[in-house]
Design a protein around this nucleic acid. Structure first.
Lengths: 126, 126
DNA sequence: TGACATCGATTACACATGTAATCTATCTTG
DNA sequence: CAAGATAGATTACATGTGTAATCGATGTCA
């Protein structure tokens, strides 16, 4: 809890890679993101640096390289970001947010089924 | 379309009021938001000014006052912000975003029912 | 009509963010 | 061991954002 650390757009991209591949060295992150986003290697390094400073990442040394790893859990960041989104755009009301997303997304029948299951499991829990 | 106008957190607050109450004069917006957010009147004025500059709001004159009104539709802004959220946090995958929100929100049985209906209506549309 | 109250415009300023270039320390390799 | 490659650290800089104070124009009220 108490996790009001803001993670920017570009930083999220980096975090996705670290959560997926940690421990990672910067070069791997560069490989994953630089070209795809039109970023220079330096830009990715800056992100890593800032994320360490924010204590969202930490690293272990491996010779002169760093091996980065997450300090905060992906799920916690997602929770925080989702809450912030629902607050900002829907004044905190989750239902309208869900309605909107359902209406505006393409979902496979499998995904629809899975969602229905989730809804069923929540029934009566209010 | 072509709406990459960024609306900040604080600006969203202002927009909610304008969408709801337009035409509004700045004082009304101040009344709605200043105290509640610990903002000074000047801060709210700045927001209005910036939103006009971004062409998200416009106004008609009423004597020396302005009557603000939205230029962009709420639904368009919501769509854009939702897409940006899903992209940033879930790499563009709507289903996981929905799963997460369902799992982490309290929803009344009515809301659950409404959501189920929406899902049913989407079935087979993929 | 003149002083005051208000309104919007302009200016301010620190911090965040996107986007790097450059510097410096450290490997590596001949 | 020396020179080059490379990693991270430091510095840079424009723009966005939160948060206002102040300024100048304009209504209003006595």
């Amino acid at each position: 809890m108490a996790n009001p650390i803001p993670i920017s757009d570009a930083e999220w991209q980096v975090m996705h890679v670290v959560w997926r591949d940690h421990p990672v060295e910067s070069q791997q992150v560069v490989d994953q993101l630089a070209e795809a986003n039109g970023w220079s290697a330096a830009t990715v390094k800056t992100m890593l640096h800032r994320l360490v400073k924010k204590q969202v990442l930490d690293f272990d040394r491996d010779g002169k390289r760093y091996l980065y790893r997450p300090v905060v859990r992906r799920s916690d960041c997602i929770r925080q970001e989702s809450r912030s989104f629902v607050d900002r755009v829907f004044g905190g009301a989750a239902a309208p947010a869900l309605m909107h997303l359902v209406k505006n997304s393409k979902l496979t029948d499998e995904e629809l089924a899975e969602l229905r299951q989730l809804l069923d499991r929540k029934e009566g829990k209010s």
